[in-house]
Design a protein around this nucleic acid. Structure first.
Length: 112
DNA sequence: CTGTTGACCAAGG
DNA sequence: ACCTTGGCCAACA
């Protein structure tokens, strides 16, 4: 991977405010890599847990916890951390994109 | 070198 | 609300 892209993505993730979430696609755009949502997931997968990146604030479109398909246990951790920050969930285990702290309307999840 | 595989996504059915 | 399709493209077999 191009290290500059990696750092751009990690920077975008670090910019997500506490108590809010963003999506892979949105992080990709914020990192100047529109349409490359998959790359965000790949980078987060390779990112060491020691790195100071709030990976738990990144969810899939619609508030789904995409990490569940990759590491079911991680999804539990993600939900715990988000709830501790005040993020609300729906019955189906999705993040409430409309009422999360600081969430803004439809697609604008965190202000750039 | 080609083929498949994804922490994805938007649109259409 | 779920499923399929086509787009995406780096890593991996």
């Amino acid at each position: 991977m191009d290290p500059s892209r990696v750092s751009a993505i990690l920077r975008a993730v670090r910019a997500i405010p506490r108590g809010t979430v963003s999506t892979y696609g949105e992080v990709a755009r914020a990192a100047g890599l529109p349409g490359r949502a998959r790359l965000v997931g790949r980078v987060l997968r390779e990112a060491p847990g020691s790195a100071a990146v709030p990976w738990h604030r990144v969810v899939a479109a619609g508030g789904r916890l995409a990490v569940a398909a990759y590491a079911p246990h991680a999804a539990v951790t993600q939900r715990m951390r988000l709830e501790r920050e005040g993020v609300r969930f729906t019955r189906g285990g999705r993040v409430r994109l409309d009422t999360s702290v600081g969430a803004g309307r439809k697609s604008r999840i965190f202000p750039g």
